[in-house]
Amino acid sequence: MGGYSASFIFGFIWSVIKSSDFWAMTIRMTTPLLFAALGSCIAAKSGIFNMSIDGLINSTAFISVICDGFVRKWVIGGRKKADVGEEVYNAIRNRANTAGWIAGIVGAMVFGILLELLFAYFVIDLKANASLTGIGANLLITGLAPFLSLVITGNRANTNTWYDLGYVPVVNIPVIKDIPILSTLLSGHYILTYICVACVFIVNALLFKTAMGLRIRAVGENPNAAESVGIDVRKVQYQASLLCGLFGSMGGTFMSLCYVGFWVRNISAGRGFIGLAASTLGQANPIATTIYAYVFGWFDALGINMRALSLFPSQFLSMLPYFATLVGLILYSISLQNKIKKAKAMQ
């Protein structure tokens, strides 16, 4: 194959896989997938197939950048380095950056919740087909984000001219940062990555340990039965959509402020759908979903690392996460079918 021997190729892949940088990259690249997956987990548990999650990531990525940029400008307030002196200016700048990313997360959450509530209104109250509405919502965002970008920043394809990079802090964990391999693996990630891991347990506790989670699961399992014991199905589904927007929106923030650094058109590149697939595979169980999200993130990272070896065309490596998702979905369905067959045979 292209002048390379098979043993060389496998040796290369092995050298990629055994490096701790690769695993750190896997953790980083899984973050947006995992946020999307957790969001769709909650929606799926309440019985809503949330296709709009990809649009949610695309739009919240943009909203984060806009909120970040405006708050940063507002905090600096037109003060210039020459007027206030370098030290004071740097202090103000740091404060502006911190206020900026927090505003980015909050703004994205607000917008994400609004978008999901709109989606929920169409699906729950207007009884629209969830797939079709989800597709419509995604198309809406593919138009809305460039539209707002052109109106606000004067550039429809990205926000480079208006905004420099995002400054989400990197967290170095005190003890772990001194241990050789663990330091690259677990320490030095963006704060959102740690929030994301915390969110897995938060969502898990929310779904399985609280009354609200119980109601959400009951509604998803059988809306009629839930209604018969006095649960307001509509309200619970709205709550679940709200939570979906809340958690999913942080995926968008991560994409723009941390991963890319700014906003570009179609920034999600299908990550929302991959997250949705992960939640399908994990049967909307947050822990299982997390494992599948890490598997897809692993393929994503592998595809990018393999580019160093110019053996495979980069396009085929870009296909890798989508292909893995497709195969994963098929394998999952086969196992599900076998289970049903077995259950039928038992009867």
Partner: peptide, 24 residues
Amino acid sequence: VPLELIQVMTSLIIMMLAADQLFS
């Protein structure tokens, strides 16, 4: 006025036409 406005408009129409219960 950016031309993406039309994309917003058409996708809103898709969503509204998908909603069976509009004016139910």
